[in-house]
Structures are given as C-alpha cells and as structure tokens.
Design a protein around this nucleic acid. Structure first.
Length: 420
DNA sequence: ACTCCACAGGAAAATTGGGGTA
DNA sequence: TACCCCAATTTTCCTGTGGAGT
C-alpha cells in the first residue's frame, strides 16, 4: 500500500503537486457562488427594486415610511434585494435611518424579535434575552425609539413563521409599536413565501400592515442563466467550463420553483468537484454529482439540527417502514418510538406530541403522509420516508445519545423482546 | 342509517427553566 | 436564597371525521 507519497519514475512526488498543476484555475473567489455573498447586481429584479425604492424614497425627504410586504418562493431574491435596498438607503441617509434585519424562523416570538430590535438601535441600553415582561420591553423600546432622531426599518424575514407560531396578535404588537407608539418612526418590511399570508391576517392588522406588496416571481431557466453567467465569469476562465453545465444548473434551479440559490449552490459544488477530480473542465457530470451531494448535505443538516425526540420519531418511521413497507401508521410509529425511548433510557413524549413531530417532519420534507380512513379500523396517517433512508439512519446514529440504537433492526423480534 | 375505530388536530392547562427582584 | 414573572414546551382534554362493519 502506498503512503502519502507516490513513487513515479523512480522519484518521490508530493501529493499536493497535482493541485499545483491543476487544470481548472480559479480566477476569482469561489465565495461569489455562495449563499453568504451579497450581490450588487440583480438581473430580472429591476421592477421589484424600483418599486421598493419608490416606496422608501419618502424617507429621504423626511416623510414617514411605508410598510412593505415582499412575496416569493425561496431563492427568488427577496432577502438579498431587501438587504441591498435598505443598504443603499443607509448609504444615502445613514444618519437618519437604521435597518434591523430579523429572521422570524430563528427568532419566532414577539419577545425575541423586540430584543433583537433593541440590539440594532444605536444608543439603546441592553435588554436581557429573558426575564422582562413583554410590556416592559415594549414601553422601554417605544420611549427609546421616540427619543432618537431616526427612522427604524425592521425587516422581518419569514414573517409568516411568526404569525403561524404566535398568532395574529404577535404581529399586531410589533406593528403597533413601529407604526403608532413611536410616532411613525418605524417601518416594517415583511418577507414571506406564503402567497396567501396577507389574506389570512386579521383586518385590523391588514389596515396597518401593507400599503404595498411586491411579488418576486420564480426565475425561469433563461433568467437563472443570466444570474449564473456573470458570477461564473468572475470565478472561472471561459475554457474551464462547459456551457451545458451552467444550463443544467439553471434548469435544475428552474424546476425547483425557480430557485436561484439552488442553481448557484449547484454551480459552486460542481466546480469544487471538478477541481477535486483534477478535470480541466466543469462538465454536466459534475453537476449531476453535485446535485446528489447537495441533496445529502441538506438531509444531514436537517437531521443534525433536529431535537432528540424528533430524531427518534424519524428513526421509528424508518423501522416501521422496514417492518411493513407502505403501511407505517401513526399508532405504530408512536409505539415503536416509545420502545426506542425505553431502550436508551429516556422518558417518551405523549403520542399527541409525536403526532406534531410527524407533521413537522413532513413540513421538512423528510417524510410523506397521507390521511386514510379504514372504516371500522379507524382513521390514521400513513407515513413514508421520502427516500435515502440509509443516509438518514446514518445521520441519526451520529448522535451519541442514540448510539445504542445501532443494532436495532426493524423486526417484530425487537418489540416482542421488549414486552417479555 | 347507525356505530365505532384510531386517530387528527384545536384549546387550554400544566410543567420547565431563564432571569429579575427583594 | 426564596420567590415572582414570563415564554416555551409538553400534556391533558376534547371534538371532529371517513368509511367498513352491522
């Protein structure tokens, strides 16, 4: 077996040599093709930018701001455009405006949103992350915002998550603070991918929320190419990639509801793969491989960030599926889950909670469920793993707490053993 | 037509835990 | 340190439901 050096024509080669002589040479930073990169050019988003700028332009003349709602699927540029426009506004009148960006998926209660808001505002004293009453934070913030000579723009990304979790009232509280109790010093830009979000709101919120909503339509494959080309051109020389590779990334992104993020991620990973292969060109095969890698990465990340009980429920779904293909039901998954909990010595949650976890796992796309009625034999959800169960199982077992489950098979034997 | 299973999923109560206050 | 307040999580309790069996 060869070690870390390779003997070639009688002389030792350093394994790093091949990276030195690599055929694909990057002419720019690969991070241009990453999610973190905030672009300065937005092909096919001119209308949305113009509308936003027009709505916010009043601030330059000292008028109060309008609230905005941005709609669109993931990867249609809502967040980037919002950050770009507010950034430009701050560049213009940074002494009069402060933007605060909060993702409501991460900070999903009015409490945590207000705490975050307080952190953005210059000169506001620290508010603890818990302990104070909402009322106290509220009046403290209202006073402080009133006392400074600035307009505060609060960008609420995934605003639907806030309402979904806490109800209409949570949004009402924030709106009232920003719009009324601060003397019109505040403005809210809501971002959501739920096109019926506005319709579902309480009328008293509707009237305060949105004077203007801006739609971010999905990109088609041609538009995605326009997004990809300039970025790729900054990273690779023209002879280092097949045009077909870019077209394929665009096509895959377009198929995924016009998702630019997906197309860009795919392109980056394809390049990384081509470099690893030491190929001289990024080809469609690299894109196909990248798509697989990306899929598995997403699954790993999703599984890894689940709480222990959710992982156990997911594991039970897989085991149930192994026992009876096509027929895992809520009751069965719930029972198996309780067994697994006992196996690793933790207290199982109630089946009601398990039922919620099942719904959450479905929202994450890890499983599919269909409600079926079996007449006399009740009504239940049929649960199926969406695929790649081996990968998922592997990622679940990466959790040290769940290691004892390594040897459990989805056999009837396991449950019989438990009940003896 | 009626019953009744095995849940779905809404609402409210109970528990947990961080942080403030005296 | 003991106690209070609050948000988040989980449990308890509940009503609703589609269709096979009677």
């Amino acid at each position: 077996m060869v070690g870390y050096t390779i003997r070639d024509y009688g002389k030792l080669m350093n394994p790093f040599d091949k990276y030195e002589t690599q055929s694909i040479a990057l002419i720019g930073d690969l991070s241009i093709l990453s999610v973190i990169h905030q672009p300065e050019d937005f092909p096919h988003r001119e209308n949305q930018i113009n509308t936003m700028v027009a709505s916010l332009s009043g601030l330059i003349k000292g008028f109060s701001a309008t609230n905005l709602l941005l709609y669109g699927k993931t990867g249609t540029g809502k967040t980037s455009v919002a950050k770009y426009v507010t950034g430009m506004l701050e560049e213009k009148i940074g002494d009069k405006v402060t933007t605060c960006y909060v993702n409501c998926q991460t900070y999903d209660s009015p409490y945590s949103i207000l705490v975050n808001l307080s952190k953005c505002i210059p000169g506001v004293s620290n508010i603890p992350t818990s302990g104070w009453t909402l009322d106290r934070i509220y009046s403290e913030l209202a006073d402080q915002i009133k006392s400074i000579e600035r307009t505060i723009i609060l960008v609420l990304d995934e605003i639907d998550k806030l309402v979904e979790k806490n109800g209409d009232d949570s949004l009402y509280v924030i709106l009232k603070l920003m719009v009324e109790d601060t003397g019109s010093r505040g403005s809210i830009i809501g971002i959501t991918n739920d096109s019926s979000f506005y319709e579902k709101l309480d009328p008293r919120i509707k009237s305060r929320m949105s004077r203007e909503s801006i739609m971010f339509t999905p990109y088609n494959a041609e538009e995605l190419k326009d997004i990809l080309y300039p970025r790729v051109a900054n990273v690779l020389s023209p002879q280092s990639y097949d045009e077909a590779a870019i077209s394929l990334c665009a096509a895959i992104g377009a198929r995924e509801h016009g998702d630019a993020r997906k197309a860009i991620d795919l392109m980056r990973i394809s390049i990384e793969m081509a470099m690893r292969d030491n190929s001289n060109k990024v080809s469609v095969n690299h894109v196909y491989n990248a798509r697989d890698t990306l899929e598995v990465d997403i699954i790993r990340e999703t599984v890894k960030t689940q709480p222990t009980h959710s992982k156990l429920v997911l594991f039970s779904v897989i085991l149930s599926g192994e026992r009876h293909p096509n027929s895992a039901t809520t009751g069965e998954v719930s029972g198996l889950y309780a067994d697994l909990c006992r196996e690793i010595g933790i207290q199982p949650l109630t089946s009601r909670r398990v039922s919620d976890y099942i719904s959450e796992l479905e929202d994450l796309g890890m499983i599919n469920t269909t409600v079926k009625s079996l007449g006399r034999y009740g009504r239940t959800r049929y649960i199926k793993i969406t695929g790649r169960e081996n990968d998922i199982k592997h990622f679940i077992l990466e959790d040290q707490e769940l290691e004892p489950l390594k040897n459990i098979k989805g056999t009837r034997q396991f449950r019989l053993d438990e009940h003896i």
